[in-house]
Design a binder for these strands. Structure first.
Length: 187
DNA sequence: CCCTGATTCGC
DNA sequence: GCGAATCAGG
């Protein structure tokens, strides 16, 4: 290696590698870092010039290239209404889909998991609540939530909290019970 | 905000 | 031909 190529160009080798990696499903940025000395934009640009965009999926919409009437002369708003043909071509043409397809790892449809209400209260015998609103809370009041937060009667414990604790002694005990204890308690 | 590819257009 | 800037989408 006598000379470091200052401006790496698209040599046959690099183009071949590009083709291979692209058809392998690597993303443009991955390919860019693989090749080195090119940005993903460069890769994408080359891919398009080579005419191998679309990859495996490539639903040929047979659209005759709408090529909108382009901008008058001001470089600002080049984003306008997508042409139908363009839009059609965009769907199902992303690398993500291609990869998902290539790796054959279809996600099973999201399973519906039952809604689990936040267990704020835990049927707990509350002897000395103060029914504090959020406005009543300060450094010395227990901030243990009681009830459904979306309900109008939601409130906080409001007891005097232990020094340095957000909760009163009773609720601190409930909040900070060791795992083993919780296990035991659960049964 | 991270990522993806697509497109435009000055160079 | 090249690729940064930009766009559009997940």
């Amino acid at each position: 290696m006598s000379k470091m190529e200052r401006r790496m160009s698209w040599t046959e080798e690099r183009v071949e590698l590009l083709k291979k990696l692209w058809t392998d499903g690597l993303s443009a940025s991955q390919i860019a870092s693989e090749l080195g000395n090119v940005t993903r934009n460069a890769v994408i640009g080359k891919v398009h010039r080579l005419g191998l965009s679309g990859r495996a999926k490539a639903v040929r919409p047979t659209a005759p290239r709408p090529q909108k009437a382009r901008r008058p002369s001001v470089p600002r708003p080049q984003a306008a209404v997508p042409q139908p043909a363009m839009a059609a071509r965009m769907v199902g043409n992303t690398a993500l889909k291609a990869e998902t397809f290539a790796y054959a790892e279809p996600q099973p449809e999201a399973e519906v998991r039952p809604f689990r209400a936040p267990a704020t209260v835990e049927e707990f015998p509350v002897p000395s609540e103060r029914r504090a609103t959020i406005l009543d809370l300060n450094e010395h009041t227990c901030k243990w939530p009681i009830g459904d937060p979306t309900s109008s009667d939601f409130h906080f414990c409001g007891c005097r909290s232990k020094a340095g604790s957000p909760y009163c002694e009773r609720h601190a005990a409930q909040a900070y019970q060791p795992v083993t204890d919780r296990r035991r308690k659960a049964h």
